[in-house]
Simulated assay, not measured.
Amino acid sequence: MIKWRGTTYRFHPLLTLVFIGAALTGYFLEAVTLFAIVFVHELGHLAAASGFGWRIREVQLLPFGGVLIVDELGSVSTREELVVALAGPLQHVWMILTAMLFQWLGVGEREWWNYFIEANIMIGLFNLLPVMPLDGGKVMQCLIGYVLSYHNTILYTTWISMSLSVGIICTAVFQFVNGRLPLNLLVIGVFLLVSNWYAYRQLPYHFFRFLMARGQRVSQLLRKGTLAQPIIVTSRRTMAETLKLFMREKYHLIYVVNEKGRIQAILPEQQLVSGYLDGKKPGSAVSDLFM
């Protein structure tokens, strides 16, 4: 663990194993090159997040990328998350162009620059896979969030990520059966599967954090002016079920109707969120807020 300019950088055990293996097999320079590429990639995320004023707790460095641990879980705009997610892969573009320029100028060894370019392409494309917590997974989550409720967004992206992680593991096993030893692919697949299984177990906590920060996001939406997205429910529907219909980039008015379809009440979303967070039981009906 290293602390630099107020940010903690934590090395994942996988990265340590990669360095040890590289040192034992004579590929230490290649490992250092990969680490440098990953570090620059993560600095791109860090610069974008800092530019938006995000509170960054630490940066976890992995052999194939990194993870920014921030406090802005579901509380910032989707646009900001998209920019931060894409800021990492974009670093590979200028690194590749710089390497090509140095090759053209004849600076350094051509073979090393070829390796540098290939490593950038490999890391950049891998991070764009639609698997959480990779950058592609975050982009996928942001885009799905424009059409689905936030609860369903984090649920579906977790399931998609776990399914694709299993696919990576199966690919590694298939290669092993055919006489290859894809240890790196297998380790990455297992890591992604475990990470997403843990994320799946943490979904209630993740969603609760979203509700806790909802007031801040609603203030941002109302400050700039926004169209209200109606949610129509019966008075018997629970608050917990209704909150799961909330979309991240929409402001909601909740129309409570009776069995005949007549409107009994119109509730601003703040009233529902506050009622739920102020101690109402998850199974309490929406009607408890106005009856």
Rank of each mutant, 00 (worst) to 15 (best):
S219M: 14
I117E: 05
S274G: 04
H12V: 00
W112A: 15
L143F: 06
M95H: 09
P130T: 04
W113G: 00
G179R: 00
A85I: 03
V93I: 14
A23K: 13
T238S: 11
L148E: 04
I188V: 14
A31N: 08
Y251E: 14
Q175C: 08
E72L: 03
N120A: 05
I96Y: 06
D288H: 07
Y150G: 03
R237S: 09
I169L: 04
F52D: 05
L164G: 04
F28G: 13
Y251C: 04
F35Q: 09
F207H: 03
G137E: 09
A99W: 13
E72D: 04
Y200T: 02
L82S: 01
V93C: 15
A23F: 07
L97H: 12
Q220P: 01
G88M: 00
F116W: 06
R180F: 10
Y27H: 14
Y255A: 06
K250T: 06
S50N: 15
T78V: 03
Q216H: 11
L34K: 13
Q175I: 10
Q270C: 11
W113N: 01
E58L: 08
K138A: 11
P89T: 15
T7I: 15
T7W: 12
L211E: 01
L86K: 07
V67R: 13
L68W: 00
F290P: 06
L90A: 15
A285D: 10
L227F: 12
M100A: 14
N258S: 08
L193V: 01
A85L: 10
E109A: 02
L61I: 02
L125R: 12
L62E: 07
R214F: 10
A31H: 06
I168V: 13
S75T: 13
V173E: 06
L68I: 06
L14E: 07
I123N: 10
H92P: 08
P130V: 07
Y255C: 09
L277N: 09
S163T: 09
M95W: 07
L148G: 02
S284C: 13
H206D: 08
T16K: 14
P204C: 11
S219H: 13
Q220C: 00
A49L: 11
M162S: 12
Q271G: 03
L129H: 06
A22Q: 05
L15N: 02
P282D: 05
V218D: 08
H92A: 09
G6Y: 12
Y251P: 03
F116I: 04
A228T: 11
P63T: 01
K138M: 09
F39L: 15
N127A: 04
V190T: 05
F19A: 05
N258C: 01
G145I: 00
G51W: 10
L29I: 03
T157N: 05
F246I: 11
G106N: 07
V32F: 12
S77V: 08
V218P: 03
H45V: 02
E241H: 00
H45R: 13
R223S: 14
S161A: 00
W104D: 10
I169C: 05
A47C: 01
G65M: 12
